[in-house]
């Protein structure tokens, strides 16, 4: 635990009187790949959304790259531009072309010139394997292609951390692999990643640590080896047996 880039201490989050997060502790080191899994409603999506303050936590502390998340607008802006996020439903901007989707934030937030933003965007499209789709609109692409554009859009801001919120859950089976390949390549390049997913193959391949969430708490955490081969908690065992039986 030498170089934590994300520190969460006792993070609590309530939706009205429903406790979504009941005190989460997590430290993520630079370059680490974290996989979060757990049943639906366990707070895993809510948790990663508090890290770039799309959800606001009510108690506890979240410190990203040495900066604490508070109501200070400048802090939030800085932190958001250092964290890329990929959503389950892609959330591409449908009125903009693929290229415009990627260049929008670099041009308006980083104040890059159009030429520079487009050059970077084209390189990123190359990296996610769809350089020929630059002029198309999101509605003209397959789900897998859209999700790869969404990854490119997040990477365009040159973030230090990438958050993935169930990035393959809305995809047809044959498209899951093309997205996971991009994510694996990203993990191997040294990016700090927090991934909410049930793709256990992905977890086995690249995760450094795994966290099992249930009812707003971290039930168990450990290396993939610990979790898969030697789970300690009954709930973890039960959940793993449910999602792994069909593998």
């Amino acid at each position: 635990m030498s170089d934590p880039i994300i520190i969460c201490r006792d993070v609590e989050k309530w939706f009205d009187d429903f406790p979504a997060l009941k005190g989460i502790d997590m430290e993520v080191n630079k370059g680490e790949v974290i996989v979060i899994f757990g049943p639906s409603g366990s707070g895993k999506s809510t948790f990663i959304r508090t890290i770039n303050r799309i959800e606001v936590h009510q108690r506890g502390q979240i410190i990203v790259d040495g900066m604490e998340l508070t109501h200070d607008v400048r802090n939030i802006a800085t932190i958001r531009s250092e964290i890329g996020m990929v959503f389950q439903l892609f959330n591409l901007f449908p009125h903009l072309s693929v290229l415009q989707n990627i260049t929008l934030a670099p041009m308006w937030v980083r104040k890059w010139s159009k030429a520079k933003a487009e050059e970077v965007a084209q390189q990123l499209l190359e990296r996610v394997g769809i350089p020929e789709q630059a002029e198309k609109f999101p509605g003209q692409l397959s789900g897998g292609q859209q999700q790869r554009v969404a990854i490119a859009r997040a990477l365009a801001m040159q973030p230090k951390i990438m958050l993935f919120d169930e990035p393959t859950s809305a995809l047809d089976p044959e498209m899951i692999k093309e997205v996971l390949d991009v994510m694996i390549e990203l993990a191997q390049s040294g990016m700090t990643m927090i991934v909410v997913t049930h793709e256990m193959g992905f977890a086995r391949a690249v995760a450094d640590r795994m966290f099992f969430f249930d009812e707003g708490l971290v039930v168990e955490s450990g290396t993939p080896d610990d979790i898969f081969n030697n789970p300690k908690e009954d709930r973890t065992k039960l959940f793993l047996s449910q999602i792994l039986t069909h593998d």
Binding site: I54, R80, M85, F87, L89, N91, F93, L104, A156, M157
Partner: peptide, 23 residues
């Protein structure tokens, strides 16, 4: 306009004004 659009705009770092104007 779906809430996901505004979340995506926030996530890439656009401020409130830019989110409204551009997205």
């Amino acid at each position: 306009v779906p809430a996901g659009q505004i979340e995506a705009a926030k996530a890439v770092g656009l401020n409130k004004f830019q989110t409204t104007l551009l997205v």
